[in-house]
């Protein structure tokens, strides 16, 4: 927390990349904002006007106690309340794979925000592929730490799957960055390679 306050960084590579993608002073909605780590860095470090939506009431109350504007709500049902294009960025970090209707949620993000930023774990990552191939069991990795019966992730996808969906929805992918387990970034020029070597990916999209 203190790191975010003093440096405007979160200490998490995917969140720090999101910080870099957001223009200073922008209006930002962080969907699934947890305890407010990214939101705090956006407000303090980037001078953003930040709002959050979070499923867990404990996360909401913790965020509000930290001076952030957050309401309790569910990405699957409560995004409909937000007016069109009311934010510069609608961010969904590490949550799309846990929604019931990822396609609808993605549509809502680009409706509410002029840009959407989506980050997700890549199920095409080579360790995931290897784990399934070698053990014959659902992969458990650092990015996907829970067993199949515990995981909230009900709609896992690969980088290529997500880009296919974006194409299907007619979205413009303004930026796509994958990073490996060491946190090294690689812009997705070769989708095939990124889909193998990227453990996580962050996408900047618009309608």
């Amino acid at each position: 927390m203190t790191a975010a306050v003093t440096t405007g960084r979160t200490g998490r590579v995917d969140l720090d990349l999101i910080l870099d993608l957001v223009e200073p002073s922008a209006r930002v909605l962080d969907v699934g904002c947890g305890d407010g780590l990214l939101l705090e860095a956006l407000v303090d470090g980037r001078g953003c006007e930040g709002r959050g939506l979070e499923l867990s009431q404990a996360g909401v109350n913790m965020s509000v106690a930290r001076g952030l504007s957050v309401i309790q709500g569910d990405a699957d049902t409560d995004l409909a309340d937000f007016p069109d294009q009311s934010f510069d960025y609608a961010i969904l970090s590490q949550t799309l794979q846990a929604t019931r209707e990822p396609r609808t949620v993605l549509r809502e993000l680009v409706r509410i925000g002029r840009h959407a930023i989506v980050s997700l774990p890549n199920f095409g990552y080579w360790r995931v592929r290897w784990s399934l191939l070698a053990t014959g069991r659902m992969p458990v990795t650092t990015a996907l730490p829970q067993s199949w019966f515990d995981t909230p992730n009900i709609h896992l996808c690969t980088i290529q799957d997500f880009l296919d969906l974006a194409l299907l929805e007619g979205l413009v992918v303004e930026r796509a960055v994958a990073f490996d387990a060491g946190g090294r970034r690689r812009d997705i020029r070769s989708q095939r390679l990124a889909n193998i070597f990227g453990q996580q990916a962050v996408f900047l999209l618009r309608r």
């Binding site: 709002r51 009431q57 909401v60 109350n61 509000v64 504007s69 957050v70 309340d81 937000f82």
Partner: peptide, 17 residues
């Protein structure tokens, strides 16, 4: 809260147990 969200107001909402 829904009404405030619909007009893009800056709103926080806490339910306390």
């Amino acid at each position: 809260v829904r009404a405030l969200t619909a007009v893009a107001a800056d709103v926080s909402f806490c339910e306390i147990a």
